[in-house]
């Protein structure tokens, strides 16, 4: 039995967890650096003069020059970059070119609403797609219900193709305007969450449903499930204990990738519902060409996505420790 203990001892001896966490953290730092640099470069690379664009074509030249000086755009690039980093370290995101308000206040006021929307939508996706895909797989395995399989494939592929902002427009038209059962726009209590969350969650749910079904079918065809069937366990126990855990670990990796996309998707959906989040702020400032706010929004959304990515990776590694050993 010496080899069993040697094998059991091996992962502990070499600490794959430390290696794994260090690598992921390093990747996060590099990515954050890219976001910071990109947001810095944006306002300086934009064709034309962003300050003039924000203030309007008929703004007096000395006002534009003053604004430029205020933003530090008249200094050398390395110095500007250094200033940019120092301001970020203090939590200062600059001021809006249009309103003159500090952008940090805007972010502080609006980011929670965006994250709440994204997290709620993600929760909905998981709650529906994980059990749904599992059931669909068990129901249609071995081509025993070809019609149900076709219906499932057709429905999910159509739903997966519906863009969230189009769905948002459709839902508004249907459930808020034509049949006024839900609020049209804004954050007016729990009822107003229904439509934005629905609009955000529907397409990812369809995508994840298909993935969970495919993963479950793979597990159902595995040797160890046949071995478990040979033990004639009750169907419920067989599926919950032998099938579900393996199918879900694989599916959750895909699901983890959906959350960042959901955060990005809020930009469009918030615009439709005039949701008081960072996304609609970004959309508005793009329209108003207020690049200070756009820059900050890109920075904040980008880094939240990266942090979420990092957390999802860690959570997945906790769920499936073997992946840590594989990936290091």
């Amino acid at each position: 039995m010496t080899t069993v203990s040697a094998r059991l001892g091996a992962p502990v001896r070499h600490r794959p967890w430390v290696v794994f966490c260090c690598r992921r953290a390093a990747r996060l730092v590099v990515a954050l650096f890219v976001v910071v640099t990109a947001s810095f470069a944006m306002i300086r690379l934009i064709p034309g003069d962003p300050v003039r664009a924000a203030l309007g074509v008929d703004a007096p030249p000395d006002l534009v020059a003053a604004k430029r000086r205020e933003l530090g755009l008249d200094r050398g690039l390395p110095e500007q970059y250094w200033q940019h980093l120092r301001r970020l370290a203090r939590g200062d995101l600059g001021v809006s070119l249009v309103t003159g308000e500090p952008v940090a206040d805007l972010v502080r006021a609006r980011l929670p609403a965006t994250l709440l929307l994204a997290v709620l939508a993600f929760a909905c996706v998981l709650v529906v797609a994980l059990p749904g895909g599992l059931l669909a797989a068990v129901w249609t395995r071995g081509r025993r219900r070809p019609r149900a399989e076709l219906a499932f494939t057709a429905t999910t592929s159509v739903l997966a193709g519906v863009p969230d902002f189009v769905l948002a427009a459709g839902l508004t038209a249907g459930l808020a305007v034509a049949l006024p059962v839900l609020p049209v726009a804004g954050d007016l209590g729990p009822r107003s969450y229904v439509l934005p969350v629905l609009a955000l969650a529907l397409a990812p749910t369809a995508v994840l449903l298909r993935i969970v079904r495919v993963e479950t079918l793979k597990v159902l065809a595995a040797d160890y499930v046949r071995a478990a069937r040979a033990k004639r366990l009750p169907a419920l126990r067989l599926h919950l204990r032998h099938v579900a855990p393996n199918a879900l670990t694989a599916s959750l990796t895909f699901a983890g990738n959906l959350l960042p996309a959901l955060i990005a998707g809020t930009v469009l959906v918030e615009k439709v519902f005039a949701w008081p989040g960072i996304g609609s702020a970004m959309a508005q400032s793009v329209a108003a060409q207020d690049y200070a706010v756009v820059e900050a929004s890109v920075l904040v959304l980008g880094s939240s996505v990266l942090v979420v990515n990092f957390l999802v990776d860690l959570a997945l590694a906790l769920l499936d420790p073997r992946s840590v050993i594989r990936k290091t």
Partner: peptide, 16 residues
């Protein structure tokens, strides 16, 4: 690591 939509918006703003 960056969602495609965000990257597209960033570059769309950049390219004009």
């Amino acid at each position: 690591a960056f969602p495609a939509l965000l990257v597209a918006m960033f570059f769309a703003a950049l390219f004009g």
